[in-house]
């Protein structure tokens, strides 16, 4: 599985999405691109950390239920590595349980979003983590 940078090879990647459900990934990709960010994606847990190191995204949208390696494990690895420890991470989960939210916070997730979410909610969350007005770029 190869991560794809949709915003072109040279351009820095804004958001890396780690999500195994194709239709959800497609919807997220559409919404975030529409908001003006460059998007990359991976579909299994094993490649997330490598992809982060290689593509240096400004943030990560991370699903918990990933094949091969769970989102929580990935998050733990990212926080453990000094080079990626500061990376803003948005955790997505379909389980929607209190316990998952707590685990995510303990592991250092910046924002926790429960599926199904509204598109606006995710866009706002990503914007708050990236700290810049997306429309400015979108307009560019």
């Amino acid at each position: 599985m190869e991560a794809r940078g949709t915003g072109g090879g040279v351009l820095a990647l804004d958001v890396l999405i780690a999500e195994d459900e194709p239709s959800i990934l497609e919807a997220l990709d559409f919404v975030l691109k529409k908001a003006g960010w460059t998007i990359g994606s991976v579909m299994d847990g094993e490649v997330v950390v490598d992809t982060v190191r290689r593509l240096r995204p400004r943030m990560l949208v991370l699903d918990v239920m990933l094949p091969k390696r769970s989102g929580f494990e990935v998050l733990k690895q990212i926080r453990a590595d000094a080079s990626t420890a500061k990376l803003p991470v948005l955790v997505l989960t379909a389980k929607g349980q209190q316990q998952d939210r707590r685990v995510a916070e303990e592991l250092g997730a910046d924002i926790f979003v429960t599926k199904p979410y509204s598109n606006v909610e995710v866009v706002e969350a990503v914007r708050s983590l990236l700290g810049d007005p997306a429309d400015k770029r979108a307009g560019a």
Binding site: A94, K115, P116, Y117
Partner: peptide, 14 residues
């Protein structure tokens, strides 16, 4: 919950 939320997520998003 997970199994229901997953298709719901796609449906809501689209």
């Amino acid at each position: 919950s997970h199994e229901v939320r997953t298709p719901m997520t796609a449906i809501r998003a689209f």
